[in-house]
């Protein structure tokens, strides 16, 4: 892709060391997002994968300031919006939008489809009623619904059609950045591809940037330019989707990708699956060291005591001691890459 042209341009969104803790009973805190950093360029899709409770949705919402961040910085189009209050946020809300997971809960059942799509424009005082009606008319067709659907109510639509209504509502504000929080997981298999193709088409035509949150790894690989892998509030690996998917570096990413079921009997038989022991620990009291150390087959004493930094390795960011510069050097002195030294032992 045209990465060369972009190198001097500011990223559309920059997230630095973002944390979000939720208060819990007994003075404890849920460490939902625990120091995450990444950037998204214009027209780019960043896929976020991870298991339930890893903080991927909390992160998406914190970036949009639906939740107030506990720490770190959110920089959108060169402007630090971390401490913006409600009023200052208003123009940014227009530019940063969200598509929700549940197309049943995210549409007001008492509004007609036309009202639903028009509402955000009324809130942001855009256009005259006549202009707004024309925009609604236009959007309905853009997302593949019929003009006479405008006067109908959400209950008359299937899941996939509702998701299209939700997308039309998002588009009404002409956003630049959209958080898609599990937009297809509530849909039937034959409908998922329709919605994915629509999102891709809109990106091509309008240059949207997406933060695409999902747990279907194959879909995330398909739609994303870059992938971030989250585990217990931490981003353990970040790189281009081909790199992360075809040659995962972090032990957790390796296990996650190997465990994903493939819809192909021959591949499924040949695939070497890494079956992890145990389950994700509670974010109420995360382990003191590396969040993954309790389940990691390669964990050392050090991993259990001190959380690793995020290291740059091979054009990627990995939070694992295996890729710490001193270790990489040690391995290369022995004539091996870290992967050969650790995983193929």
């Amino acid at each position: 892709m045209n990465n060369e042209a972009k190198t001097n341009v500011k990223p559309l969104l920059e997230v630095k060391n973002l944390t979000k803790y939720f208060p819990a009973k007994g003075g404890k805190e849920v460490h939902a997002v625990d120091g995450v950093s990444f950037t998204i360029e214009k027209g780019e899709t960043l896929g976020i994968v991870g298991e339930s409770g890893c903080g991927k949705s909390s992160m998406g919402r914190t970036i949009l300031k639906v939740h107030e961040p506990t720490g770190g910085r959110i920089i959108f189009d060169g402007e630090d919006i971390t401490d913006f209050n409600h009023r200052k946020m208003m123009p940014y809300r227009k530019r940063m939008q969200m598509i929700f997971q549940d197309p049943y809960a995210s549409l007001n059942p008492r509004f007609t489809v036309g009202d639903i799509i028009e509402e955000p424009m009324i809130i942001h005082k855009m256009g005259t009623p006549k202009e707004r009606k024309a925009i609604v008319q236009d959007l309905i067709e853009t997302v593949g619904l019929k003009p006479d659907h405008i006067r109908r109510y959400p209950f008359e639509f299937s899941g996939g059609q509702r998701q299209r209504i939700g997308i039309a509502r998002t588009l009404a504000l002409k956003p630049e950045f959209i958080v898609c929080d599990e937009p297809i997981s509530a849909l039937d298999v034959s409908i998922q591809a329709q919605v994915i193709n629509l999102l891709e088409k809109l990106q091509r035509e309008r240059g949207f940037s997406y933060l695409f949150i999902a747990h279907d790894l194959e879909m995330v690989y398909h739609i994303s330019h870059k992938i971030g892998v989250m585990y217990l509030g931490n981003m353990v690996e970040f790189g281009t989707s081909d790199d992360v998917y075809k040659r995962p570096l972090h032990p957790y990413t390796r296990a996650l990708i190997s465990a994903a079921p493939v819809a192909d009997p021959k591949q499924a038989k040949e695939k070497k699956r890494i079956i992890l022991q145990g389950e994700v620990p509670s974010p109420l009291d995360p382990p003191p060291g590396c969040p993954f150390s309790g389940r990691c087959p390669y964990a050392t004493e050090k991993c259990k005591i001190k959380k690793p930094d995020t290291y740059e390795y091979d054009g990627r960011k990995v939070a694992c001691y295996i890729y710490a510069p001193e270790n990489v050097k040690q391995y290369s002195d022995a004539g091996k890459t870290p992967e050969e030294a650790v995983f193929l032992k």
Partner: peptide
């Protein structure tokens, strides 16, 4: 209609 990582993405 399903994404397959072995196909061209």
């Amino acid at each position: 209609s399903i994404a397959n990582s072995s196909a061209d993405k």
